[in-house]
Simulated assay, not measured.
Amino acid sequence: MGRFLFLFFLILFSYSYGENLDSRVTELEKKIKELEQRIDILETKLEVKKSTVKIQNVEYKNPLKIKVLNKVFKPINLREKLWEKTDKIILDLELIYTLDKPAKNIKGYFYIKDKNGRVLMEREVNLNKSFNFISGTDIKPSEKLTASISFQYNESNPDHIKVKEAEIDDITVEFLPLQIRFSDGKIEKYN
């Protein structure tokens, strides 16, 4: 009698487990098909993004003319070590705004390049005149601005050492805009 019950439960259990296994396999196949469809959708979105990037990769007028006035290496001060973590290379720049519309804010990257055009250092910046209440907070067309941009110096990076040792004439500074917020509220984005 005990053997009979054991065989009965064994057959019943294996039959019910087999149904669960088949149903699980079909559910997994459905999920795999759904995931493949999602992947196809994402790939088409990625292709659309790539094509829009190609469309937006058009020549544009750089909003700033740059002249390097001075280059200074500033080693870390032991008293300032709590908030200053690294040595810095500071560039004093004269910037001339070249666009025709006044701007509130210009966001982009400054690149220090060698004579061959190779990027040695880079820094993201946000240029504005937010605290200049006397002459206004708008950057006007053909207006000259002065700015000090500091780049974090890494002594183990040979490119940073080149910048530190180079003369002002041996390096060039270029600006790549990411976004310009104009005074009328319009925003122009670049890629």
Rank of each mutant, 00 (worst) to 15 (best):
121 M>C: 04
124 E>W: 12
147 A>D: 07
130 S>D: 15
147 A>H: 11
153 Y>D: 00
139 I>N: 00
162 K>F: 12
135 S>Y: 14
163 V>F: 04
152 Q>Y: 06
120 L>R: 02
157 N>K: 10
137 T>G: 11
127 L>Y: 02
157 N>S: 08
157 N>M: 06
140 K>S: 12
128 N>A: 10
124 E>L: 14
143 E>Q: 11
147 A>N: 11
128 N>C: 06
125 V>K: 02
151 F>C: 02
164 K>D: 08
141 P>V: 05
148 S>Y: 07
164 K>I: 02
130 S>G: 13
144 K>H: 10
161 I>Y: 00
130 S>A: 15
121 M>P: 00
124 E>R: 04
138 D>L: 10
161 I>H: 05
152 Q>A: 11
137 T>I: 15
140 K>A: 13
158 P>K: 10
133 F>Y: 14
146 T>H: 11
146 T>L: 05
123 R>V: 03
127 L>P: 01
129 K>L: 12
137 T>H: 06
164 K>P: 04
163 V>A: 08
120 L>G: 01
125 V>R: 05
144 K>L: 15
152 Q>M: 09
114 D>W: 00
145 L>A: 08
162 K>R: 08
156 S>V: 15
124 E>G: 08
124 E>F: 15
156 S>R: 14
147 A>T: 07
117 G>T: 08
157 N>Q: 04
